[in-house]
Design a protein around this nucleic acid. Sequence first.
DNA 1: TGTTTATTGAGATTTAGTCTCAATTTTAAT
DNA 2: ATTAAAATTGAGACTAAATCTCAATAAACA
Lengths: 142, 142
Amino acid sequence: MREEEKLKKFLKAKGLKFTKEREDIIREIENTEGHFDPDGLFIKMKNRGSKVSRASVYRTINLLLESGIIDVVENIDRHKHYEKVKDKTHHDHMICIKCGKVIEFYSPTLEMLQQELCEKEGFTPTKHSLEIYGYCKQCYKK
Amino acid sequence: MREEEKLKKFLKAKGLKFTKEREDIIREIENTEGHFDPDGLFIKMKNRGSKVSRASVYRTINLLLESGIIDVVENIDRHKHYEKVKDKTHHDHMICIKCGKVIEFYSPTLEMLQQELCEKEGFTPTKHSLEIYGYCKQCYKK
DNA sequence: TGTTTATTGAGATTTAGTCTCAATTTTAAT
DNA sequence: ATTAAAATTGAGACTAAATCTCAATAAACA
Protein backbone atom coordinates (compact mmCIF):
# COMPACT_ATOMS: atom_id res chain seq x y z
CA MET A 1 0.00 0.00 0.00
CA ARG A 2 1.20 3.50 -0.77
CA GLU A 3 2.09 5.75 2.14
CA GLU A 4 -0.78 8.04 1.19
CA GLU A 5 -3.30 5.23 1.52
CA LYS A 6 -1.87 4.17 4.85
CA LEU A 7 -2.16 7.72 6.12
CA LYS A 8 -5.76 8.05 4.95
CA LYS A 9 -6.64 4.84 6.72
CA PHE A 10 -4.92 5.93 9.91
CA LEU A 11 -6.60 9.34 9.91
CA LYS A 12 -10.01 7.88 9.32
CA ALA A 13 -9.56 5.43 12.15
CA LYS A 14 -8.74 8.31 14.46
CA GLY A 15 -11.48 10.65 13.20
CA LEU A 16 -8.94 13.03 11.72
CA LYS A 17 -8.99 14.74 8.35
CA PHE A 18 -7.02 14.19 5.17
CA THR A 19 -6.23 17.76 4.21
CA LYS A 20 -4.55 19.29 1.18
CA GLU A 21 -1.53 20.04 3.34
CA ARG A 22 -1.21 16.49 4.60
CA GLU A 23 -1.56 15.21 1.06
CA ASP A 24 1.19 17.57 -0.06
CA ILE A 25 3.51 16.46 2.74
CA ILE A 26 2.97 12.71 2.37
CA ARG A 27 3.62 13.00 -1.36
CA GLU A 28 6.83 14.88 -0.78
CA ILE A 29 7.94 12.12 1.57
CA GLU A 30 6.94 9.43 -0.92
CA ASN A 31 9.26 11.11 -3.40
CA THR A 32 12.12 11.37 -0.92
CA GLU A 33 14.86 8.75 -0.95
CA GLY A 34 16.72 7.98 2.25
CA HIS A 35 16.70 10.17 5.33
CA PHE A 36 14.95 13.45 5.85
CA ASP A 37 14.37 15.95 8.62
CA PRO A 38 11.29 18.13 9.18
CA ASP A 39 12.89 21.47 8.51
CA GLY A 40 14.70 20.23 5.41
CA LEU A 41 11.44 18.86 4.09
CA PHE A 42 9.74 22.18 4.77
CA ILE A 43 12.43 24.17 2.94
CA LYS A 44 12.34 21.79 -0.01
CA MET A 45 8.57 22.12 -0.30
CA LYS A 46 8.69 25.87 0.08
CA ASN A 47 11.31 26.15 -2.67
CA ARG A 48 9.17 24.19 -5.05
CA GLY A 49 6.26 26.55 -4.36
CA SER A 50 4.22 24.78 -1.71
CA LYS A 51 2.34 27.06 0.69
CA VAL A 52 2.41 24.53 3.54
CA SER A 53 3.61 25.86 6.90
CA ARG A 54 6.45 24.67 9.03
CA ALA A 55 3.99 23.90 11.83
CA SER A 56 2.00 21.60 9.56
CA VAL A 57 5.11 19.76 8.47
CA TYR A 58 6.05 19.09 12.09
CA ARG A 59 2.49 18.15 12.99
CA THR A 60 2.14 15.77 10.07
CA ILE A 61 5.47 14.13 10.74
CA ASN A 62 4.29 13.35 14.26
CA LEU A 63 1.18 11.70 12.82
CA LEU A 64 3.29 9.66 10.41
CA LEU A 65 5.45 8.53 13.28
CA GLU A 66 2.45 7.57 15.35
CA SER A 67 0.99 5.60 12.46
CA GLY A 68 4.25 3.75 11.82
CA ILE A 69 4.63 5.06 8.28
CA ILE A 70 7.97 6.62 9.11
CA ASP A 71 10.51 5.95 11.81
CA VAL A 72 13.23 7.85 13.62
CA VAL A 73 16.67 7.03 12.26
CA GLU A 74 18.67 9.19 14.61
CA ASN A 75 18.18 11.79 17.21
CA ILE A 76 21.35 13.78 17.54
CA ASP A 77 21.88 17.31 18.73
CA ARG A 78 18.13 17.66 19.23
CA HIS A 79 17.72 17.22 15.53
CA LYS A 80 15.63 14.30 14.41
CA HIS A 81 16.05 12.37 11.17
CA TYR A 82 13.41 10.09 9.77
CA GLU A 83 13.01 7.52 7.03
CA LYS A 84 10.12 5.67 5.45
CA VAL A 85 9.63 2.32 7.09
CA LYS A 86 9.66 0.52 3.75
CA ASP A 87 13.02 2.15 2.99
CA LYS A 88 14.58 -0.06 5.59
CA THR A 89 16.21 -2.24 2.98
CA HIS A 90 19.44 -3.20 4.53
CA HIS A 91 22.25 -0.79 5.19
CA ASP A 92 24.30 0.20 8.20
CA HIS A 93 25.01 3.63 9.63
CA MET A 94 27.93 5.75 10.72
CA ILE A 95 26.61 8.63 12.77
CA CYS A 96 28.61 11.75 13.57
CA ILE A 97 28.11 12.64 17.24
CA LYS A 98 29.05 16.24 16.53
CA CYS A 99 27.06 17.31 13.45
CA GLY A 100 24.59 14.45 13.20
CA LYS A 101 25.59 13.50 9.67
CA VAL A 102 24.55 9.97 8.76
CA ILE A 103 26.74 7.94 6.43
CA GLU A 104 25.05 4.86 5.04
CA PHE A 105 27.28 2.03 4.06
CA TYR A 106 27.06 -1.57 3.00
CA SER A 107 29.83 -4.13 3.15
CA PRO A 108 29.42 -7.65 1.78
CA THR A 109 32.49 -8.70 3.76
CA LEU A 110 30.83 -7.51 6.94
CA GLU A 111 27.66 -9.39 6.06
CA MET A 112 29.60 -12.59 5.39
CA LEU A 113 31.55 -12.28 8.60
CA GLN A 114 28.35 -11.86 10.58
CA GLN A 115 26.93 -14.94 8.87
CA GLU A 116 29.97 -16.93 9.96
CA LEU A 117 29.77 -15.66 13.52
CA CYS A 118 26.10 -16.64 13.66
CA GLU A 119 26.82 -20.12 12.36
CA LYS A 120 29.41 -20.59 15.06
CA GLU A 121 26.68 -19.88 17.64
CA GLY A 122 24.03 -21.95 15.89
CA PHE A 123 22.08 -18.75 15.33
CA THR A 124 19.89 -18.07 12.27
CA PRO A 125 19.87 -14.34 11.57
CA THR A 126 16.93 -12.54 10.00
CA LYS A 127 18.12 -8.96 10.24
CA HIS A 128 20.62 -6.81 12.03
CA SER A 129 21.39 -3.24 12.94
CA LEU A 130 24.89 -1.79 13.14
CA GLU A 131 25.42 1.79 14.18
CA ILE A 132 28.89 3.21 14.47
CA TYR A 133 29.17 6.48 16.37
CA GLY A 134 32.09 8.87 16.06
CA TYR A 135 33.31 11.90 14.17
CA CYS A 136 32.98 12.57 10.45
CA LYS A 137 35.92 13.93 8.49
CA GLN A 138 34.85 17.58 8.83
CA CYS A 139 34.12 17.44 12.56
CA TYR A 140 37.27 15.51 13.44
CA LYS A 141 39.48 18.27 12.06
CA LYS A 142 38.16 20.79 14.54
CA MET B 1 38.66 0.77 37.16
CA ARG B 2 36.73 3.57 38.82
CA GLU B 3 35.03 6.11 36.60
CA GLU B 4 37.31 8.82 37.96
CA GLU B 5 40.40 6.92 36.87
CA LYS B 6 38.95 6.28 33.44
CA LEU B 7 38.23 9.97 33.05
CA LYS B 8 41.75 10.94 34.11
CA LYS B 9 43.18 8.53 31.59
CA PHE B 10 40.92 9.80 28.83
CA LEU B 11 41.71 13.44 29.57
CA LYS B 12 45.42 12.81 29.64
CA ALA B 13 45.29 11.00 26.32
CA LYS B 14 43.56 14.00 24.79
CA GLY B 15 45.78 16.59 26.47
CA LEU B 16 42.90 17.88 28.58
CA LYS B 17 42.89 18.78 32.24
CA PHE B 18 41.47 17.07 35.30
CA THR B 19 39.95 20.03 37.14
CA LYS B 20 38.26 20.35 40.52
CA GLU B 21 34.95 20.77 38.74
CA ARG B 22 35.37 17.62 36.67
CA GLU B 23 36.37 15.73 39.80
CA ASP B 24 33.27 17.00 41.57
CA ILE B 25 31.02 15.96 38.69
CA ILE B 26 32.47 12.50 38.11
CA ARG B 27 32.18 11.76 41.84
CA GLU B 28 28.57 12.83 41.84
CA ILE B 29 27.94 10.46 38.96
CA GLU B 30 29.82 7.64 40.68
CA ASN B 31 27.43 8.03 43.59
CA THR B 32 24.36 8.07 41.37
CA GLU B 33 22.41 4.88 40.86
CA GLY B 34 20.43 4.39 37.67
CA HIS B 35 19.86 7.10 35.13
CA PHE B 36 20.37 10.83 35.41
CA ASP B 37 20.01 13.96 33.33
CA PRO B 38 22.39 16.94 33.16
CA ASP B 39 20.09 19.50 34.65
CA GLY B 40 18.98 17.21 37.47
CA LEU B 41 22.61 16.48 38.27
CA PHE B 42 23.37 20.20 38.33
CA ILE B 43 20.48 20.98 40.70
CA LYS B 44 21.45 18.11 42.99
CA MET B 45 25.04 19.34 43.17
CA LYS B 46 23.99 22.92 43.70
CA ASN B 47 21.68 21.91 46.55
CA ARG B 48 24.48 20.11 48.30
CA GLY B 49 26.62 23.23 48.04
CA SER B 50 28.76 22.66 44.97
CA LYS B 51 29.76 25.81 43.10
CA VAL B 52 30.03 24.04 39.76
CA SER B 53 28.21 25.72 36.86
CA ARG B 54 25.51 24.33 34.64
CA ALA B 55 27.81 24.83 31.63
CA SER B 56 30.53 22.69 33.21
CA VAL B 57 28.07 19.93 33.98
CA TYR B 58 26.95 19.83 30.36
CA ARG B 59 30.53 20.06 29.10
CA THR B 60 31.74 17.28 31.36
CA ILE B 61 28.86 15.02 30.46
CA ASN B 62 29.81 15.37 26.82
CA LEU B 63 33.36 14.31 27.65
CA LEU B 64 32.08 11.32 29.61
CA LEU B 65 29.95 10.33 26.64
CA GLU B 66 32.84 10.65 24.26
CA SER B 67 35.05 8.57 26.51
CA GLY B 68 32.43 5.85 26.82
CA ILE B 69 32.13 6.20 30.59
CA ILE B 70 28.44 6.98 30.31
CA ASP B 71 25.88 6.32 27.63
CA VAL B 72 22.55 7.74 26.51
CA VAL B 73 19.65 5.72 27.89
CA GLU B 74 16.74 7.59 26.44
CA ASN B 75 16.10 10.71 24.49
CA ILE B 76 12.53 11.67 25.13
CA ASP B 77 10.95 15.07 24.65
CA ARG B 78 14.27 16.62 23.77
CA HIS B 79 15.52 15.64 27.17
CA LYS B 80 18.48 13.28 27.41
CA HIS B 81 19.01 10.70 30.15
CA TYR B 82 22.29 8.96 30.77
CA GLU B 83 23.68 6.03 32.73
CA LYS B 84 27.08 4.67 33.65
CA VAL B 85 28.34 2.07 31.22
CA LYS B 86 28.59 -1.27 32.94
CA ASP B 87 32.09 -2.42 33.61
CA LYS B 88 31.94 -4.95 30.83
CA THR B 89 34.31 -5.28 27.95
CA HIS B 90 32.83 -4.52 24.58
CA HIS B 91 30.61 -7.10 23.01
CA ASP B 92 27.80 -7.34 20.48
CA HIS B 93 24.46 -9.10 20.66
CA MET B 94 22.50 -11.81 18.90
CA ILE B 95 18.89 -11.63 19.98
CA CYS B 96 16.38 -14.43 19.45
CA ILE B 97 13.10 -13.00 18.18
CA LYS B 98 11.22 -16.05 19.44
CA CYS B 99 12.42 -16.65 23.00
CA GLY B 100 14.28 -13.39 23.63
CA LYS B 101 17.55 -15.11 24.47
CA VAL B 102 20.56 -12.81 24.15
CA ILE B 103 23.88 -14.22 23.02
CA GLU B 104 26.85 -11.96 23.68
CA PHE B 105 29.77 -12.29 21.33
CA TYR B 106 33.00 -10.56 20.47
CA SER B 107 34.98 -10.79 17.25
CA PRO B 108 38.32 -9.02 16.77
CA THR B 109 37.97 -9.56 13.03
CA LEU B 110 34.65 -7.74 13.08
CA GLU B 111 36.16 -4.87 15.05
CA MET B 112 39.03 -4.59 12.59
CA LEU B 113 36.74 -4.68 9.60
CA GLN B 114 34.65 -1.88 11.05
CA GLN B 115 37.77 0.16 11.62
CA GLU B 116 38.70 -0.30 7.96
CA LEU B 117 35.22 0.67 6.75
CA CYS B 118 35.36 3.81 8.88
CA GLU B 119 38.76 4.77 7.51
CA LYS B 120 37.41 4.42 4.01
CA GLU B 121 34.77 7.03 4.87
CA GLY B 122 37.16 9.31 6.77
CA PHE B 123 35.17 8.53 9.90
CA THR B 124 36.66 8.33 13.41
CA PRO B 125 34.61 5.87 15.46
CA THR B 126 34.17 6.15 19.22
CA LYS B 127 31.73 3.32 19.82
CA HIS B 128 29.29 1.08 18.05
CA SER B 129 26.32 -1.11 18.59
CA LEU B 130 25.63 -4.26 16.59
CA GLU B 131 22.51 -6.25 17.17
CA ILE B 132 21.71 -9.31 15.13
CA TYR B 133 18.14 -10.53 15.31
CA GLY B 134 17.05 -14.05 14.37
CA TYR B 135 16.43 -17.53 15.80
CA CYS B 136 18.56 -19.32 18.33
CA LYS B 137 19.37 -23.02 17.84
CA GLN B 138 16.49 -24.27 19.99
CA CYS B 139 13.87 -22.02 18.44
CA TYR B 140 14.94 -22.63 14.86
CA LYS B 141 14.26 -26.39 15.16
CA LYS B 142 10.59 -25.81 15.83
C1' DT C 1 -26.23 22.59 2.01
C1' DG C 2 -25.34 23.22 6.65
C1' DT C 3 -23.28 21.98 10.98
C1' DT C 4 -19.67 20.25 13.54
C1' DT C 5 -15.11 19.72 14.41
C1' DA C 6 -10.39 19.36 13.02
C1' DT C 7 -6.76 21.99 10.85
C1' DT C 8 -4.25 25.73 9.26
C1' DG C 9 -0.64 29.61 9.19
C1' DA C 10 2.14 33.18 11.22
C1' DG C 11 4.61 34.14 14.58
C1' DA C 12 5.37 33.93 19.57
C1' DT C 13 7.11 30.80 22.87
C1' DT C 14 9.66 27.19 25.09
C1' DT C 15 13.75 25.12 26.63
C1' DA C 16 17.71 21.77 26.40
C1' DG C 17 21.86 22.69 25.28
C1' DT C 18 25.79 25.69 23.47
C1' DC C 19 28.59 29.70 23.07
C1' DT C 20 31.28 33.93 24.54
C1' DC C 21 35.16 35.71 26.77
C1' DA C 22 37.80 37.60 30.47
C1' DA C 23 39.58 35.62 34.58
C1' DT C 24 41.46 31.57 36.51
C1' DT C 25 43.56 27.08 36.98
C1' DT C 26 46.07 23.12 35.41
C1' DT C 27 50.07 21.05 33.45
C1' DA C 28 54.62 20.37 32.23
C1' DA C 29 58.98 22.31 31.53
C1' DT C 30 62.62 24.69 33.60
C1' DA D 1 59.12 26.48 43.08
C1' DT D 2 58.40 29.51 39.14
C1' DT D 3 56.66 30.28 34.99
C1' DA D 4 54.65 30.02 30.45
C1' DA D 5 51.31 27.98 27.52
C1' DA D 6 47.06 26.18 27.06
C1' DA D 7 42.76 24.52 28.77
C1' DT D 8 38.79 25.58 31.71
C1' DT D 9 35.63 28.12 34.21
C1' DG D 10 31.12 30.81 35.27
C1' DA D 11 27.36 33.90 34.15
C1' DG D 12 24.35 34.79 31.23
C1' DA D 13 23.40 35.68 26.36
C1' DC D 14 22.25 32.98 22.63
C1' DT D 15 20.58 29.14 19.39
C1' DA D 16 17.36 26.38 17.22
C1' DA D 17 14.25 22.44 17.02
C1' DA D 18 9.90 21.82 18.21
C1' DT D 19 5.50 23.31 20.16
C1' DC D 20 1.81 26.37 21.14
C1' DT D 21 -1.84 30.13 20.34
C1' DC D 22 -5.95 31.37 18.22
C1' DA D 23 -8.82 33.35 14.75
C1' DA D 24 -9.89 31.95 10.18
C1' DT D 25 -10.74 28.10 7.23
C1' DA D 26 -11.69 23.64 5.33
C1' DA D 27 -12.96 18.67 5.64
C1' DA D 28 -16.51 15.26 6.68
C1' DC D 29 -20.86 13.65 6.60
C1' DA D 30 -25.81 13.62 7.26
